[in-house]
Simulated assay, not measured.
Amino acid sequence: MRKRTKARQVALQFLYQMDLRNDEILEQKDTFIESTECCAEVRKYALELIDGCRIYWENINDAIAKVAKNWDLSRMAVVDRTILRIAVYELLYRKDVPQKVVINEAINLGKRFSTEHSGAFINGILDNLKKN
């Protein structure tokens, strides 16, 4: 598995918990990251994703809400919403990752960790964001 793919999975796990438990989980971030059986490069990128999503949380949520036609953010599955946050962060704030890579990675995360329909759902939202 590629390093950034693994980093996205680690970030997904932590941000999923953060979505459910709010900021109380932040004090456990470093312990969580260190407990993963990953190389330093994976842990570094996972931390960048987590920190970036946290810093831009409201902007990311607003961007998703604007393009998620007929979907309220709170009605989305937590896993899908978390994957979208990571992808939107990368699309809007990480110019070092090609858009196609971000979208493909998000679709694959959805297929792997959510429902059989999540890949298409995530693709639709991210495609709308990319167009706008």
Rank of each mutant, 00 (worst) to 15 (best):
L92E: 11
C38G: 14
I64A: 04
T5W: 15
R43E: 15
L73V: 02
K130R: 10
F121H: 07
L73P: 03
D80W: 02
R81W: 01
L47Q: 10
N104T: 11
I107K: 10
C53R: 04
M1I: 12
D62C: 09
I125W: 04
A77W: 04
V79E: 02
M18L: 04
G124Y: 06
L20S: 08
Q28S: 07
I33F: 12
K131N: 06
D19I: 00
A87F: 09
R75P: 05
R54A: 01
L26R: 08
A63I: 06
S114M: 11
L73H: 05
A46M: 11
G52Q: 04
D127C: 06
R85T: 09
D127H: 06
L20Y: 01
F113L: 12
L73I: 13
C38F: 13
V79H: 05
Q99W: 08
L126S: 04
R112M: 15
K66C: 09
I103Y: 03
A46I: 11
L47N: 10
L126P: 02
I122T: 07
K131P: 02
D30P: 04
E34S: 11
R2T: 14
I83R: 05
A68V: 00
I55H: 11
R112W: 13
S35V: 07
W71P: 00
T5A: 15
Q17T: 00
A7S: 14
V79M: 12
R4H: 14
M18R: 06
T36P: 06
C53M: 05
K29S: 01
A87H: 03
D80S: 12
K131R: 12
R94M: 10
D96L: 09
Y45S: 12
I25H: 05
L47E: 10
E34C: 03
L91I: 10
